[in-house]
Amino acid sequence: MKLFTKSLRAVDLVLVSRPLEYGNSQKTKREHMKNWLIAVAVMAAVASPLKAGDVTGKVSLEGDRPAELNLPLDPSCGAAFKKFNPGKKPKTRFYVSEKGGLGDVLVVINGIKGGKAPTKPHVIDQRGCEYLPYVSAAQLGQVIHVLNSDPALHNVHTQPREAGNAEKNLAQLPNGPAIKFDYQKAERFLKFKCDVHPWMYAYVSLVPHQYFAITKADGSFSVKDVPPGEYEIEAVHRKVHTGANYKGVKQKVKVSAAGGKADFTIKLQ
């Protein structure tokens, strides 16, 4: 306790650059309180990964991607799709790519621990008889909310591969309440599908920590707030790295307070 008071005094000295007489007046007391709070904030800041940096980069696509296919929407779904996506054609989304990049790639730091516990649910929506987003990732422990913004009825059917994650198939009425999924095992590209509309799919990767990202259409990504250190970072694409456990391309990345950089190239042969 003595040590604690001493350190507080020291903090006071540093922060306010004048000594304090304890309990002498209301003003000094308040002043002391304020300084004390600042000290706590500083200490908290040192302990927390504020100095952590973002790992950024781009996943480039090498080779010609096959043409996407038309989705066989039925008339009611076609109308809903048009409403949500005016001027767009319903197509498959196997290889999303812009400017030489590859989208929908899961970028994940391997073997890392710690980080924050998730607070918000992970939301995927059914709009125009399509799942949005098509490929996404959530932190383990994040409850997955599946919405239905369509005037149509869907069934939400999950097909996990990981033992311990149970298959579920639930009905969802038009604009019905969110269906919640609480999976407990990490799994890459857990499939969500609708059997009413057999072209409707979504893939959600469940990552055991917060250090992951999904690339944008141009291949760019940013894994936020990675504590400084050296890590293995992996880029996995659902279609390219198909197979038992979805093994992607890996590399080392050094992360400092200023962040880190990792570019990937995924080849299509």
Binding site: S76, L173, D195, V196, H197, P198
Partner: peptide, 24 residues
Amino acid sequence: MAVPDWPTTYGQNMFLFPVGQWVG
């Protein structure tokens, strides 16, 4: 798996399930 429940159909008696919802 388009009708997830059984013997009900989307929570309703199978024989009373409205024809308008026989889609996809």
